[in-house]
Design a binder for these strands. Sequence first.
DNA 1: ACGCGAAATATTTTT
DNA 2: TATTTCGCGT
Length: 728
Amino acid sequence: MDWEREWERLNPYQREAVTDENKACLVSANVGSGKTTVLTAKILYLHEVKHVSYRYMVVLTFTNKAASEIRERLVRADPSVTPEETENFGTFHGVALGLLKKSLPVETLGYTKDFMVMEPDEELELAHALIAEKKLKIKYKNRLRKRLAEAERVSAAGDFGVAGGQDDLEILAGLLTEEKLRRNKMTFSDLMKNACLLMAKEEGEEERAANIQWVIVDEVQDCDGKQLEFIDCFMAEGAKLFAVGDPNQVIYSWRGSAFHLFYTLKTRYQAAELSLPVNYRSCNEILEAARCFQQNGGALEGIRGSGEKIVVKNHYDSFQEACYLTDRIRELQKQGIPFDEIAIFYRLQSQSKVLEDVFSKNGIPYEVAVKTGIHEIPVLEWLLRLLRFLADPADRAAAVFVLSSREYGVGISAKKAEKLAEEGWAGVCGRKEASESGSEKAAVPGLFERMVSFERNSAEIKDTNAFYEYFDLDCSLKPNAASYGDDKANVRHFLDRMFAFMNAKDLKLPEGLREFLNSAALYGTSRELLSEADGAGEACVKMMTLHASKGLEFSHVFIIGVNYGLIPLRTKGIDGEDEERRLFFVGITRARNYLELSWYTNPDTFGVMAGESRYIRMIPSELVQGQEPERQTGTASLQELRRQVQMAKENGERLEEKDVEKADGMKEMEEKTPNIESASAEILVRHETYGCGKVVEEDDTMITVEFDGYGRKEFIKAFSCLEILNGQ
DNA sequence: ACGCGAAATATTTTT
DNA sequence: TATTTCGCGT
């Protein structure tokens, strides 16, 4: 490979980081400063110049996406790398799983080598089953997942008893651990915990860990305690550390990432501190604005020069905004900006709904960045349970789910399925008594029997078709159902993936299935497991939360709802507020060329204040291209109509609109709003389900509409989806 | 089983 | 600030 060429591309700061010789080196990498480039270059440098085998490096990332990006770049620069050499390149959890499977003595903890990864939903189900079985008293059962995670963090931090549980949460946690061990399963956090535990033990460590000479970490600022400990295990064996991260992009501290992490690492390993100040991504105006939200004082230098000013806009409400964005995106597209270079960021997932509605009505192709995982597709969720049962016939909950599923099961109640599963158990244990409960079995189609006898027959099932036919899946997927086509495609695609995985690893069915499920648990959120039918294709406008925007970049970025109460979100303490600021920083630094911020005059969500967020006023005005509030054309929302009426009436009698400082702008507006009936004789509206109707009464919060055929209906204004028909 | 006041919680999400 | 849930009283 051509190391010289790679070297040429680096700036002096990047070079310094790549060649750093310290035992531990912490690189404070600013946004858009070529973090991944440095990471890849470091790996290549160690290999090419220092002659360190890839095998002696551990490369840790937070997400699968980051892991595959590094691997891709590595292969591009050095096509000779093999997957075997880079076994320890991956996510923290992936690498931990690999170590546990290959070299760590899991037996000493009571596990066997073929343990399985337990997905979060499975753990939650198990917890609920245990609560029912042991009659535990647990408060806030619907927030159990959060409470358990919290309890685990607290106990990991060593504050025993501080949790001071008023319920049986701690007992439950204990039982859960026991049960997981009994079932030979580990959750994501168990993977980290157990890997640390076993690596810290002395026996056998010299042979294994002493080989690791370098630990290379991406996005260190997101590490939690366990991940830090994992790194520490390698360090204890004499490995060197090269970690890259950005303290300004700590936006997941609510998930347990340690905020003082840079400081901790610096003192623990006397790490050298370097920085990558040069931002290659954004134009000056955007960087200038970003600096206002930087908390960690490192310099942020741009090299791109000036571009467009930042645009700040004010919309009446989110509906108006969505209409405006529709036009704006069309306009941009006419100027040659492709859809997939445009992104819209917001604080809350729920904010995407209005945009989705308006965009799909107006034919703007969009994609909401939600994790389109397996679990959101019912048929795959069902299949997954089936596979889980096949991998572990002791998993009764999985069997019950499969059989009693309304959509794909055999149409029996959960209770009956439970009973059957229990009897089936007896059947499996002592097969001779099979004829005993003949009447029960005859009533149930063959699905269950096939599930139970799968293990015996699995050797003959070598591909998707064989599997599909063995279970007569056409029968389960119900050819008459509307979703049959999609379901079948999804199932077959998933099975294809499974068999491809097994063939690639040269595994047969029973073990191969377990391996595949483990891998699906860790990498399953990626789109690869889903059918290509949905997703792939034309360029789309991307819509996502500010959190989800981290690590991405776009030419044009719109951040919407920059109001008090949303950005920043109303938070508990000062530290939470700091994180909101970092979140905003992350958002604005995604933009390469154009950034537009908008806020609502009349937010339609409770708890959100009218008026621009303090954050907008923190941006120096010379960077901002001022803009008058947009006058609405075309379809008017109810609120907009009200505004127009008000404007007409108070013509000349100017409102004190300069008084932006006031947070109670919304209240003020409502007080000054005249009753709509005094200004307009008859207003016709349309409702999604009731059709057309006439407004008969309206006050500040409620509106009453008379519909043909439905009579009078009352709506709360903030929630009503009424379209004005004669608003102009 | 139901009603009431007090208390707690809300948002972001990868593996 | 609004909604949900808990726990205690009937």
